[in-house]
């Protein structure tokens, strides 16, 4: 089967402790490896306020997986997300280069206002 690189977001319940959140991340990384996927890296954005409430939950842990695998792996991931009550939302994006996507994410995490500052300075608002 054709393989692609994916950037997968997993939002877990904000009421979980960091250790409980880590257990969910380990469980899902096992699912990827079982379905012939290779995990390039795992990143964490921490606990954030959600833009809109999902199931009356206003907070969530943001976890990122950078994975190469096939379509069957993604299908299995969506299936398992439905079974797990600790997972609020999941989101899959196809990426050209996984290493570059991780690098961009780390840069964004360090300085989130870098690009917006460049625009506001050049426009002069």
């Amino acid at each position: 089967m054709k393989t692609n690189t994916f950037e997968i977001i997993l939002i877990t319940d904000g009421a979980l402790t960091p250790e409980e959140n880590q257990k969910v991340v380990e469980k899902f990384s096992e699912i990827f490896t079982k379905k012939d996927g290779t995990i390039n890296s795992v990143a964490d954005w921490g606990r954030r306020r959600l833009a809109y409430a999902i199931d009356k939950k206003a907070w969530g842990h943001y976890n990122f997986f950078f994975v190469t695998g096939n379509g069957a792996m993604v299908e299995e991931f969506h299936l398992q997300c439905g079974y797990d009550e600790q997972v609020i939302k999941s989101f899959v994006v196809a990426v050209k280069d996984g290493a570059k996507a991780l690098k961009d994410f780390d840069a964004l995490k360090e300085d989130p206002k870098k690009n917006s500052k460049l625009i506001t300075e050049s426009v002069g608002v």
Binding site: V93, F105, N115, S116, L118, I119, T120
Partner: peptide, 21 residues
């Protein structure tokens, strides 16, 4: 174009501070 003028090459959905403009 204000984005091209500022030299921003890539637009990502996680960059909310840029998108909110």
């Amino acid at each position: 174009c204000p984005v091209e003028k500022a030299g921003v090459t890539e637009i990502n959905y996680k960059d909310i501070e840029l998108l909110k403009l």
